[in-house]
Design a protein around this nucleic acid. Sequence first.
DNA 1: ATGATACGTGACAAATCGTAACGTATATGG
DNA 2: CCATATACGTTACGATTTGTCACGTATCAT
Lengths: 208, 208
Amino acid sequence: MGRAPQALRSSQSGPGRPRERHVDDDILTATRELLAEVGFERLTMTDVAARAGVGRPTVYRRYPSKEALVAASVEALRRDEPAPDTGTLCGDLRAELLPRAPAFGHPLVLQFLAMLLVSNAERSEFAEVYWRDAVAQRRDAFGEILVRAQARGELAVDADVDLLTDVVAGTVIYQILRPVGARTESLEGRLERLIALLCSMLGRLERD
Amino acid sequence: MGRAPQALRSSQSGPGRPRERHVDDDILTATRELLAEVGFERLTMTDVAARAGVGRPTVYRRYPSKEALVAASVEALRRDEPAPDTGTLCGDLRAELLPRAPAFGHPLVLQFLAMLLVSNAERSEFAEVYWRDAVAQRRDAFGEILVRAQARGELAVDADVDLLTDVVAGTVIYQILRPVGARTESLEGRLERLIALLCSMLGRLERD
DNA sequence: ATGATACGTGACAAATCGTAACGTATATGG
DNA sequence: CCATATACGTTACGATTTGTCACGTATCAT
């Protein structure tokens, strides 16, 4: 019986030489940079190691595969601060979306969504996890905004919040997926106009 | 100066042995089958050639790369019949979407969208072409439905059809992208409920 | 000091892509 | 019929990348 392979032991302090602390961040940063530059396909472990200034086996000691490395590099920068309650549906949507608009346009986001879609199409075990941790979480943020609006009376009490959430989430993600060359205006500008439209549409649902 | 490389000459009849006619379809069919089964990553030219019953160079004589082969295999099955004018916005949306719902759930559609997203993220030259030929065309179908509805008076004359089209297209594509395991109901059923919701929301816009 | 582990270097097998060299088969044109 | 040109299959090849391994050295706990 060999020893446990590829154990992640960054934080435990057993016997032996401890891992260089800066190396973990160097590897993840190099991965993110290269991912944004050349994409998942053309990202090679050799390049990651070279840019991080480490040897290739050092990368493999931390992550068993290229997929795991990239997944970890993307997950490490995901932070989800809950959107503030601005008091109105329209304000909540704007507060949720507009500050994130620049991030939505970042190459890394597109790369992540592409990986997610590939995993999804391949029915990989990662697909649902990625979806739940990234996309579904944002979708639920919209859902909470709609529930608050419903509690305020901005939305009809019999409105189907689940379906409406799909409308909002779908509209937003569609803007992110759209190729840059196929956009007629800036992502921020279009998102702002779409928010206004959605507010208007959602508000009208209460007149029943 | 060598001869022109990789010329596609399926239909021209020059001197020399003509290409086996069945081979073209065999290769594209094998590609589609394998693409749906294992995805783009794990699809290999060797497997394609084996399943098509031809040698590997025969595949390369027709398509210069794996990407070109897969692109051709997917493009070959795209046909866009215009949706009929049913006389109502809701009917048009149903007629446009429900017959295609089973196709939307097919693995090949997911694979194609995943490839499109990867190309997009890598800023590949194919991204905009794929988007225009596949996604944008469907989006425009929604746009035409909305324009017809506007002409009928079902939609406010000052409604922003371009933005509304994004709402409809985004809502639909979001359902397609959602992982199977993250779905709470069948794709057809949810699409049907979303269509009803969208009809209701869009119709209310005229009360201005 | 000893043992365990991390690190870098270098080498390695396996898979895959795309190309090339052959021999054979099948068309056109004389 | 014969020459030419091309398609096809088989086999082999180089290049790239992935992931592993062996080795020597460095660094920690005990």
